[in-house]
Design a protein around this nucleic acid. Sequence first.
DNA 1: CCTAATGTCTCTAGGAGCTATAGGTTCAAG
DNA 2: CTTGAACCTATAGCTCCTAGAGACATTAGG
Lengths: 137, 137
Amino acid sequence: MDRLTIGRLAARSGCKVPTIRYYEQIGLMAAPERSEGNQRLYDHAALQRLAFIRHARDLGFTLDDIRDLLRLSEHPELSCAAADSIARRHLDTVRERIESLRRLESELEKIATACQSDTVRDCRVIEMLAGSGELRK
Amino acid sequence: MDRLTIGRLAARSGCKVPTIRYYEQIGLMAAPERSEGNQRLYDHAALQRLAFIRHARDLGFTLDDIRDLLRLSEHPELSCAAADSIARRHLDTVRERIESLRRLESELEKIATACQSDTVRDCRVIEMLAGSGELRK
DNA sequence: CCTAATGTCTCTAGGAGCTATAGGTTCAAG
DNA sequence: CTTGAACCTATAGCTCCTAGAGACATTAGG
């Protein structure tokens, strides 16, 4: 027993209610059973699955990645190389993102301290953003 | 002289052709003059503006932020406090993003090295993603 | 037991920032 | 001159939700 309404499921999983319905709509979550009054009732397995999705989303996996991972988890006889490669591929893009955000951070730091004058004319924000060597010849 | 077709502008700015047309459509880039045959012809100023936009997008600014910054750059008599505050506000969110990506990175590192066995049954990727303490009571 | 508040239902539209497609015109190279 | 690439417009689609309207269900208080 121990059935959860969608609201409670949302509270426990950290997803929002419409998001859960959306996941059902796109087939990421199975349609759960309904109460007499047609309200969705979820079991513990649904909570686990949703928590998995939520966590993976937080980690930046796309819904497609997640679909793959979930399919893998349902077929434990398959090689885990696939799951591993999804994670690895993801790690690469995360590292790239961190790198470019670091560059951004230092640029913004410069900007935020560069502003000494009080008109844009002498302010460096604009010119810094205007672009340094991004122009290809 | 030295007019650029949209394709060349795309190549030099790093934006894609449809993206440039999209920016025109939403009023971020002005409609440029046209050739006899109705093709867009851009000047150097357009290239600079687009490079600015591109760079700012790479840095994670929203199109709305960029619109603000561009407006500021067109009115050098205004205070640069506004430009500064946009940058500052952004710096905060950038730092948060870096933080959470670092956490993500280390989590993914664990995952990517955890896979020693060759069937999912014994693979930790799935179970690691399944979620640790995210479940609220 | 009744009522009011809250939760849930479906359906539809919007939003950010593009990207893709279709069906046609124009341009530059050979 | 002819081909093929690049360009044009217009429209639809993409990802991942989020918000709103209008109606039914459930629950807590009095």
